[in-house]
Every structure is written in C-alpha cells, then in structure tokens.
Design a protein around this nucleic acid. Structure first.
Lengths: 201, 201
DNA sequence: ATTGCATTTTACCGATCGGTCTACTATTGT
DNA sequence: ACAATAGTAGACCGATCGGTAAAATGCAAT
C-alpha cells in the first residue's frame, strides 16, 4: 500500500510529546523533526503546516486518551459513582508517571493548548471545545446511569457534567502550577459531590 | 525625582494587555514596544529581559486584581457565603467586558500563563503558585468566617479553599475554550457547595 | 528497462525572534 | 556654566522562526 516507513507516525509522536511537555509556540518545527529523526522536507511532505500538524496532534491525543484513559476508567464493571473515583485514580497515576519522566507535571494537554491558543486560533479553539464536549459526554453518561439507579434526585445532568469537567481541569491546572501530583488525590475525589440543579428551582 | 514620563508604566500596561489577550510566547518585544509607543532601546533601559518583564507583569496583575477584583468582592459588608456569589458575579462581568473589547473571552491571566510556562520556567511557575496561594487565602478567610458563624461543621478549610479556586479556574478554562461567558453564570455559583472534609474521617 | 510516483534530502528563503550597542537628548545637582 | 546622569532613538546582531524548491532516491507496475 503506502510504503511510508512510519514517518508520519514518528512526526506525530514527536510533536505530541514536545507540545504536551512544553507548549505549541514553545516548540519549533525543527525540534519536532530532530526528535522524530526526520528532515524538514519530509515533515512538509506529510503536513502542510505546523498548525495542521497541531490539529492532527489533538486528534491523536483525543483517541489515545479516549481509548487508554476514559474507556478503562468509565467501564461499567463497577457502579457509576465509583467510576468517577477510579478516573481520579487513573489521572493521578498518569500525571505521576509523566512527572517522573519529564521532571514536571504536565496537566491536561487540551487545557494547556486551550489556554494558550483559544484567543489566537479559532479553529483550534473549536476543536478543543469539541474534545471537551466529548469528555463531558462521558460524565453525562455516568450521571444518568447513577440517576436511574436512584442515586440522586433532580439534577441538570449536562450542567453537572460540565461542572465536573471544569473542576478536574482546575485541579490539573493547580497541580501543574504547584508541580505536585498529590493535589489530584487530595482534591480530585470531591468531584463526585458536585451537583447543579435545573434552573427552574 | 525620576523624570520618567510614564514610560515604564506604558510598557507594563502594553505587555499586560498583549500577553493577557494572547500568550507570553505569542507576543514579541517589538509588538509590546509599538503598542506602548516606545522604542526598543527604552524597553531594555527599564527591563533587562522579556522574562523579567513578565515577572513584573504578574506582580502588576496581582496587585490590580487584588485591589479591583478580590477586595471589593470579598468585602465584609455582606455574609461570607454571599461574598462568594458576588465574586462570581464580578468575574462574569469582568469576563464579559474583556470579551466585548477583545472579541474573545480571556479567562484567568494567571491560569493562562501557568499552563503555558509552568514546565518551561521554574521561577515563573513558583511566582504563579504564590499568586494562587494568595487567592486561596481569600477563600480560606471567607470559609473560616462562615465557619465561626456556624455555617457548616468540620471542614478542611485550606483544602476546600484550594478546591474552590480549582473549580473557578476550571470554569474559566471551559468558558474561554467555549468563548462563552454564560458558562460562568451557569457553573460558577456551585462553588459554594464544594466541601472537603479532614482526612481523618 | 523504463516510467511514474512517493518519499527523502539538502540547501535555501524572508521574516521575526530576543537582545546589544552607540550616539544623542533631556534633565538635574552643583 | 558644566558635568553627571537618566532616558531615548534607531541601527544592528546572530539565531531561529515557519515554510519552499529542487534535486536525489527508493519502489512498484508495465
């Protein structure tokens, strides 16, 4: 088929790691190529621009996190509310691992890119908003399941899911700023207490 | 004394606005000078480097927000828990105003810088951590006051304050990503429900 | 063998990056 | 009046930025 010797994949992986561990503007195409062991000409054979690459990186990250992060954590083998706690535990473990290899806590890759680029690049902003919407949907699913199990009364499920996501993003932000993963364990579990009632109260 | 015609102030204000509305790496010294109506030579007369400028910008922002944001919102003219709601309202109003003038929601300037630079610049990271600690102290004050008024039982006050700050940072992150200030009004008020109990339960 | 295409290599582009240097102009204290 | 000093102006630096052009190479089908 396509004889491509994994070059595209290597570029993508290199960009993913570098941008995640630093920032979008803080990483240059040259450095991405060096780490991927690829010449700049090859880079621009597979990606028309650094910006397009970043869009591909976001897709790649979303798939990876969806498959290796969200799906295992939210698997229906335990009651819905316990899945939230498992998610926090996974988050903590992942951030610890990243901190050990990179020397710094890296936080949420989408949150990082969002705060850096949301005002500069409308397309990236929208793409990141879509990623957040997808994660929010996971929380919504857990909430509705818990609700049908009689877990709590009236609830604005989408709003509560959004609030939970916000809380977790905020915890990751503070943890990254403090470079301290313990914050995730300390603050994370409280996510399950968050509730937003319907507006017509 | 110093004849300085407000040059330093103009540089600081220009940098504050530009960096806040875009990012640190996304703004160049040349652009900062242009907006401040200052030549590059003058810039480097007042600031030894772009990095040092950014530290001064953080100080400047902290003072401004402390005086014109936090102090009014947390003033003791109303019961402690109502101050939280007033703070959310102020936040919403401020973000709306910034969104109207800049075309985009800008979020929290400290959160923006933190996620962009925390892994690249240890000094800036620590400074931002200190800013967050100062804001956390405001929440702690409100919480202890509410507690002495018999508002709630046992509570890990510092942890709860940190969790509240995390939640607000997360809400601002999502609001910026969605470019929608309504999120602040929708999710913000739930900050008052957050509680973290002492570890020895 | 030869064509055709995908991939790779290398050299290069103009623009911008943060930062420096020197000369000039005010202003202030004596 | 004069020297010292603070501030301004603007040319200039090497490095790096994202991106381009054109050869050279590998590989597959005819």
């Amino acid at each position: 088929m396509t004889p491509e010797h994994g070059t595209r994949r290597r570029i993508l992986a290199s960009a993913r790691d570098l941008i995640y561990s630093r920032s979008y503007t803080g990483v240059g195409v040259a450095e991405i190529c060096t780490r991927a062991e690829v010449k700049k000409g090859s880079f621009y054979h597979f990606f028309p621009s650094k910006r397009q690459l970043s869009l591909a990186v976001i897709d790649d990250l979303q798939n990876a996190i969806e498959d290796r992060g969200l799906s295992p954590a939210f698997a229906p083998d335990i009651p819905p509310l316990q899945r939230l706690q498992r998610f926090i535990e996974h988050l903590h473990a992942f951030q610890c691992a990243a901190a050990k290899t990179h020397g710094h806590l890296l936080g949420c890759p989408f949150g990082n890119l969002a705060l850096e680029l949301a005002t500069s690049d409308e397309l990236i902003r929208r793409k990141l908003a879509a990623v957040f919407a997808a994660i929010q949907a996971r929380f919504e699913h857990v909430l509705t399941e818990a609700q049908t199990a009689g877990e709590f009364g009236v609830l604005d499920v989408p709003a509560t899911a959004k609030a939970m996501l916000a809380y977790i993003e905020g915890v990751l932000l503070l943890a990254k700023t403090a470079n301290d993963a313990a914050l995730i364990r300390q603050l994370g579990p409280a996510v399950a207490q968050i509730r937003i009632l319907p507006a017509d109260c």
